[in-house]
């Protein structure tokens, strides 16, 4: 197994507050790695560090063996690492198709080619019927799916999914589950943050649990779920 993405001793401090501390893990090619932890544990901060929104205070991040910490998000994206946002960011006044075309332009300069990629990505995420709708008037479920379509249109090798299941109804959860599996089958490696335990236990090959910015457990979903520290982080010491 080769590590596509590697975090080595990554730390992020905001003033006196340590959001992420000494985080070390690697994402292997072809796997789905789940990132769990209580609210405020630092999961999204890790995504922001990987994707280049924040420079780390310490430590190094490697993508395909190349150091990427300190690079700007647009450069990281072009290297083949795409992300979705937990707090969805639709380009509100643009149609769904135009939203996806914007991201498709990261791989081409030609409008027709971008359009073709965008059509494929919207079909892949089953948004065909929504293409002409302004992204700002999409229901939440579709906004989450638009995040995935846009990320896919940048043709990534690694996809960071940030709570794409949050706030979805059971039918939508099933649909998104199927789409994530389909994305994985195309050969894209996935790092996923999720609070829906049923989903993440089923979908991930490995899990990492963090609390207060530090890794407290790593292993198969079963191992992590049975780890007393993890139970304590979620339910308190009395249950551990």
């Amino acid at each position: 197994m080769t590590a596509l993405l590697e975090l080595k001793d990554v730390t992020k401090r905001f003033g006196g507050l340590q959001a992420v501390g000494h985080m070390t893990f690697s994402l292997n090619k072809g796997e789905i790695l789940g990132l769990i932890g209580p609210n405020g544990a630092g999961k999204t901060t890790i995504f922001n560090l990987i994707n280049g929104f924040y420079p780390p205070t310490g430590g190094t991040i490697f993508f395909k063996g190349k150091k990427i910490d300190g690079l700007k998000p647009h450069t990281v994206c072009r290297l083949g690492l795409a992300r979705t946002f937990q707090v969805v960011k639709p380009l509100a006044r643009l149609s769904v198709l135009d939203n996806v075309m914007v991201s498709a332009f990261s791989r081409t300069n030609h409008r027709e080619e971008a359009r073709k990629t965008a059509l494929e990505a919207t079909t892949f995420t089953e948004m065909d019927a929504w293409r002409d709708v302004p992204a700002g008037s999409l229901p939440l479920g579709m906004r989450k799916r638009l995040e995935m379509a846009r990320a896919l249109a940048t043709k990534p090798e690694v996809l960071l999914l940030d709570e794409n299941f949050a706030g979805l109804n059971p039918t939508e959860v099933e649909k998104t589950n199927a789409i994530v599996k389909k994305i994985h089958e195309t050969g894209i490696t996935i790092l996923i943050i999720e609070h829906n335990m049923r989903v993440i236990m089923a979908i991930s090959h490995r899990l990492i649990c963090i609390n207060y910015g530090e890794k407290i457990a790593e292993g198969t979903p079963q191992e992590v779920a049975n780890n007393p520290q993890v139970v304590e982080a979620y339910l308190g010491a009395a249950h551990a």
């Binding site: 994707n51 280049g52 998000p73 647009h74 639709p90 380009l91 135009d98 914007v102 990261s106």
Partner: peptide, 17 residues
């Protein structure tokens, strides 16, 4: 397309390359 994306959301635009 890039101009419009920047107008709508700069963070999003950055992360889309």
């Amino acid at each position: 397309y890039y101009f419009l994306a920047i107008r709508e959301d700069q963070d999003c635009a950055e992360s889309l390359g």
